[in-house]
């Protein structure tokens, strides 16, 4: 009897696991943002464009960091990443009380401090108080510690890489990552996260669901109603409508 139960279970296990894995591939969930969370970023020595020598941990200790990884000859995602980040941060700064700085690091060994200065000039970041641009001495250890692996494309003579923002708290721990060009709301969420604001839960970047109940609003730390919530309120509203209709009909007939 036990054997039969066991073998049935084993078959169920195999079949259902096969199913779930097949489904997952179909779903194509992107969990790369989960990689390396709560590991420490490599404490690389960096040289800021002001000429100051420091390290990532030392800089983070002053204010939590959003680390953006770019290279100056980039003809791809770096420019929109920085432009959008700058724009979003201007929006956020009007409302957000949390402290942070943006650290733009070059991952290209060919980039000099001069190149980074030019970059700062081009994006008009020289006088921005929350922005630091720097070159780093041990690029591979640093990029490895944030699971960032740019690939050199021989044909384009360009690095093929993600638009990655890494949130680092004052102890040097990576608390959140964002991949891709993201909205001001999500950047703001990142900022509250590197300030160690605990939220018991968050959504995974899964394929967009049309009807979610809540969208997390990082500015206030509260959830704002999404379309899904309307579905929870709908039954009550419809009931009121039906009651009104029945009463009007009842009145008419009597």
């Amino acid at each position: 009897m036990f054997k039969r139960t066991f073998s049935t279970l084993l078959i169920i296990l195999l079949i259902s696991n096969y199913n779930s894995i097949a489904n997952n591939l179909y779903d194509k969930q992107d969990w790369r943002e989960e990689e390396g969370i709560y590991t420490r970023i490599y404490d690389a020595k960096i040289k800021l464009i002001s000429g100051e020598q420091t390290s990532i941990h030392q800089l983070a200790a002053k204010k939590p960091l959003i680390v953006a990884l770019v290279f100056t000859r980039c003809a791809g995602v770096c420019n929109p990443l920085l432009l959008q980040l700058k724009e979003n941060i201007q929006i956020i700064l009007r409302k957000n009380q949390y402290k942070f700085s943006v650290l733009v690091l070059s991952f290209d060994p060919l980039d000099s401090l001069k190149d980074m200065q030019n970059l700062a000039y081009r994006f008009n970041l020289l006088n921005e108080p929350n922005w630091e641009l720097a070159v780093v001495d041990s690029i591979s250890s640093m990029t490895k510690s944030v699971n960032f692996f740019p690939v050199w494309d021989m044909r384009k003579k360009q690095y093929d890489h993600d638009a990655l923002l890494v949130g680092v708290n004052t102890q040097g721990y990576i608390t959140k990552k964002l991949i891709g060009l993201r909205s001001a709301d999500e950047i703001s969420l990142l900022i509250s996260d590197i300030n160690n604001v605990y939220r018991p839960s968050y959504r995974l970047p899964t394929p967009a669901n049309m009807f979610t109940c809540f969208n997390y609003d990082p500015k206030t730390g509260k959830n704002t109603p999404g379309w899904g919530l309307a579905f929870i309120a709908l039954p009550a509203l419809l009931t009121v409508g039906i009651l009104a209709f029945l009463r009007l009909r009842g009145k008419y007939h009597s």
């Binding site: 296990l13 259902s16 696991n17 199913n19 779930s20 997952n24 591939l25 969930q29 969990w31 989960e34 990689e35 390396g36 969370i37 709560y38 708290n169 102890q171 721990y173 160690n196 605990y198």
Partner: peptide, 28 residues
């Protein structure tokens, strides 16, 4: 809520196993 966790344990469940890891877990 006001403390910094010393450890993160990533936990993924699927029919009918729990996977726990100190590292992030690749869904694929």
């Amino acid at each position: 809520a006001n403390e910094q966790p010393a450890r993160i344990v990533h936990t993924v469940s699927s029919q009918f196993v729990f996977l726990m890891s100190n590292q992030d877990i690749d869904p694929a």
